[in-house]
């Protein structure tokens, strides 16, 4: 904790009230500013579906959606994410009804140990939104065009921020195709 003078009333140190909107539910927390969104979810809210794999922004296991965009929650300070709509893996399914991508992950064996899986699924959901909006990737050949083919290389590049040490990449790509191909073709 900071041992220096708090620097005036603009600054809050030690713990501060933090209100997080997670999966449609408001959580009122009292957190130190240094608490990451990842740790806030896992240690303070009790939502352990979001995983810590490196805490270095280098594996993607901690991927959550903020206002429908994917981010690494290990690099996010919880205090910065108030008033944002946060979706974790626990909020992806509609009650008992799995998201099409969750079902496809099971069917295509898009995982082994399952630890990176919540991050993969959240990441892929946002990835498909980015794709639909015409966002390019590093492998997009014609950068200026917004019609991009939903190709294997596009999926792989766009999912490369999510490491899977079990090596389930083939199943992950298959699952993404199974869940989204039809919509991508529209």
């Amino acid at each position: 904790m900071s041992e220096t003078n708090s620097g005036g009333r603009e600054f809050a140190d030690r713990t501060v009230p933090v209100i997080l909107q997670i999966n449609g539910i408001k959580h009122e927390l009292q957190l130190e500013p240094r608490v990451s969104l990842l740790d806030a979810l896992r240690e303070y809210v009790g939502l352990t579906g979001t995983k810590k794999g490196c805490n270095q922004g280098a594996c993607g296991a901690c991927t959550v959606l903020v206002d429908n965009e994917r981010i690494n929650s290990c690099f996010a300070l919880a205090v910065q994410y108030q008033d944002r709509e946060i979706t974790t893996i626990e909020g992806v399914a509609h009650s008992d009804q799995l998201h099409a991508l969750q079902a496809a992950f099971i069917e295509c064996d898009g995982f082994q140990c399952g630890y990176c899986t919540p991050g993969q699924i959240c990441s892929a959901i946002a990835m498909f939104e980015e794709f639909k909006q015409g966002a390019p990737s590093a492998v997009t050949e014609h950068l200026a065009e917004t019609e991009i083919e939903f190709s294997e290389a596009e999926i792989k590049e766009r999912m490369s921020g999510n490491l899977c040490r079990c090596g389930a990449y083939v199943g992950i790509v298959e699952a993404i195709r199974e869940a989204f191909d039809k919509e991508a073709a529209r």
Partner: peptide
């Protein structure tokens, strides 16, 4: 993308989609 593709490409080749979003 149209006028400065080098910039788009450079960004897209950096880090991951999650990090680029932050």
């Amino acid at each position: 993308r149209e006028r400065y593709p080098v910039l788009s490409q450079a960004i897209l080749m950096g880090a991951s989609a999650q990090i680029r979003n932050m």
